[in-house]
């Protein structure tokens, strides 16, 4: 049968920063082909297709972000595979190779990470689950 794609509405203008992305205009409707856990979603919009940030989209059927899982305050251990320096107040800076506890995985690709007493958002694409044998 036909593949039914989910439709999302663009909530803010987005200007592409690399070649596989597409520009978005607030109010546009896009169809989602693939949802990557790192917060980039592959979409098609009229004749264009490419990657866009999930956080710039809301489901057409309702503004609820129902797909986010609940926070897990015990945390899950992850190791950073890339350093990231916080650019905003609510982010956390970590070097490469640090272990951190992830307490909330959000669909937008920014997960809440805890290191000691510090808590903040960190890019999920720079995290790899501890104990998982994957090459990067």
């Amino acid at each position: 049968g036909p593949i039914i794609l989910e439709t999302y509405r663009v909530v803010a203008d987005f200007v592409k920063t690399s070649k596989n992305e597409i520009n978005l205009h607030s109010g546009d409707l896009v169809e989602i082909v693939e949802k990557s856990q790192n917060g980039w979603w592959f979409c098609q919009c009229e004749s264009k297709h490419g990657w866009v940030p999930a956080s710039y989209l809301e489901p057409l059927d309702g503004p609820e972000e129902a797909e986010d899982v609940e926070p897990n305050y015990e945390g899950e251990l992850y190791i950073t595979i890339n350093a990231y320096k916080a650019e905003q107040e609510d982010e956390i800076s970590l070097d490469m190779g640090e272990t951190t506890e992830v307490i909330h995985k959000l669909l937008d690709g920014w997960w809440v990470a805890r290191k000691g007493e510090e808590v903040g958002y960190f890019p999920s694409m720079y995290l790899q689950k501890c104990g998982k044998k994957e090459k990067y």
């Binding site: 803010a12 987005f14 992305e21 790192n38 917060g39 592959f42 990657w51 710039y56 905003q88 690709g109």
Partner: peptide
């Protein structure tokens, strides 16, 4: 290929979306 997602983290949610999370 275009099927490969960007190698940089996506931008943080726009202010419109952050308000909803509060």
């Amino acid at each position: 290929s275009i099927k490969n997602p960007p190698q940089n983290p996506p931008p943080r949610p726009p202010p419109e979306m952050r308000r909803k999370r509060v």
